[in-house]
């Protein structure tokens, strides 16, 4: 047994967790890590829905094999459509949301365009039965300040026909992430939270960065991340093990 992790992990009371964010927010990495974390603590294995209809590469479906090995149900298009950039919305998504027993994590791709998929499902979600969390990265061009974040979030809410219930502070620069970036993201998320009256569900960051910094003062739950969306020169096998 490794030494106990000092972080206060996030807790969720609702069954449906919708993770939304523009590209570069780290939404996919957060979704995959959150699902794997919940798989370790939930009595029923969770399901993850790859609702990324916008990005053609680096989608949560690329971590499929790893997640399935953990008992997680991965809902993605199959066959050639696995690789497609087509707006494919599977019937299983509705099924998992409406009648599944375990937790469902929806990774909603892209920005307000990507949230359109969510809009088509909005009447399926039980009122007050879901968390809809916005992933914020202060180092992205559109979400670098309060005004930018509010603008992007309002646009997504309008398209999705749903309201956010919380925020995820996930400021990062991939391999160049340092504590300064994390603190910047934390403060921005707090500012956005005050403005939009939303709680900070958790802060997420690379485990290595979190373990090397003093997290006193980060007054929120923390989800340490292990990268699974790797570039071809960072891994041994190709996407989906091809």
């Amino acid at each position: 047994m490794s030494q106990p992790v000092p972080f206060r992990y996030p807790v969720f009371s609702r069954r449906i967790i919708i993770v939304v964010g523009g590209f570069g927010s780290g939404k996919t990495e957060v979704s995959v890590n959150l699902t794997k974390y919940l798989a370790g603590i939930d009595p029923i294995p969770p399901a993850i829905v790859d609702l990324d209809l916008v990005n053609p590469y680096f989608r949560s479906r690329e971590a499929e094999a790893e997640m399935e090995a953990m008992g997680i149900k991965v809902i993605v298009p199959r066959g050639g459509n696995f690789f497609a950039d087509l707006p494919i919305l599977l019937p299983e998504v509705k099924g998992a949301v409406e009648s599944g027993a375990g937790r469902v994590i929806l990774d909603v791709g892209g920005d307000s365009q990507g949230a359109r998929a969510l809009g088509s499902l909005s009447d399926v979600f039980p009122p007050d039965g879901y968390d809809m969390l916005m992933v914020l990265n202060s180092r992205r061009p559109f979400t670098g300040d309060l005004a930018g974040c509010c603008k992007v979030m309002s646009r997504i809410e309008a398209t999705a026909k749903m309201r956010f219930t919380g925020l995820i502070a996930n400021s990062h620069m991939i391999e160049e992430t340092d504590p300064e970036v994390l603190w910047e993201g934390y403060h921005l998320a707090r500012e956005v939270g005050r403005e939009m009256n939303l709680p900070l569900a958790f802060l997420s960051a690379k485990r290595e960065v979190l373990e090397q910094m003093d997290t006193t003062g980060l007054n929120c739950p923390i989800l340490p991340l292990t990268r699974s969306m790797l570039k071809p020169w960072e891994k041994k096998t190709g996407p989906t093990g091809l």
Binding site: F23, G24, N55, P56, Y57, F58, R139, M173, I174, E176, K231, P232
Partner: peptide, 10 residues
């Protein structure tokens, strides 16, 4: 290649 367009870097 497509990776140049799609990947994120600082």
């Amino acid at each position: 290649d497509g990776m140049i367009g799609q990947m994120m870097e600082s």
